[in-house]
């Protein structure tokens, strides 16, 4: 039974690895314990823009969105949803080019020292939706 559970967990890994949504588990200070490739893909340009080390996802997000840091700090319950699919706009420089991206962000506290962070870059989707609206 235990082996089965372990096998099932291993089968879940590709889901996590290939998810189009960025996912990370961080501690209460924001230090990253686990994250998927999409999270790295989206986070690293922000890390480079801010000149951070990439250890701390909350610091990275708060560098662009101070309200995210405040929401986490001010959330007192042991667990619960802190931010749920909130839209945010981020502007960052990559190799002297100003990039604007639109994100959806979810932050959930799952214990006193553990947060789950989900974020998604919606820029391309929104561009397609706008095009559809223009055509109709």
């Amino acid at each position: 039974m235990e082996v089965n559970a372990q096998q099932q967990l291993l089968k879940l890994l590709p889901l996590f690895h290939r998810s189009p949504v960025a996912m990370a588990r961080v501690d209460a200070q924001g230090f990253i314990h686990q994250l998927n490739p999409k999270a790295v893909q989206l986070m690293m340009p922000m890390v480079a823009h801010l000149g951070l080390s990439g250890d701390n996802l909350l610091d990275t997000l708060t560098g662009f969105l101070p309200s995210v840091g405040r929401a986490v700090t001010n959330f007192k319950p042991e667990f619960g949803m802190i931010i749920e699919q909130e839209p945010y706009r981020i502007r960052l420089m990559i190799d002297s080019t100003l990039i604007e991206r639109q994100f959806s962000l979810t932050v959930e506290k799952i214990s006193s020292d553990s947060l789950l962070i989900f974020f998604e870059d919606l820029t391309d989707l929104l561009t397609k939706v706008n095009l559809l609206h223009q055509r109709s």
Binding site: H17, I32, H33, Q34, L35, N36, A48, G54
Partner: peptide, 14 residues
């Protein structure tokens, strides 16, 4: 050359 993060399964690797 640049500093980056890769993932080993789910763990970040500098």
């Amino acid at each position: 050359e640049l500093d980056y993060i890769l993932t080993y399964i789910c763990e970040p690797v500098k």
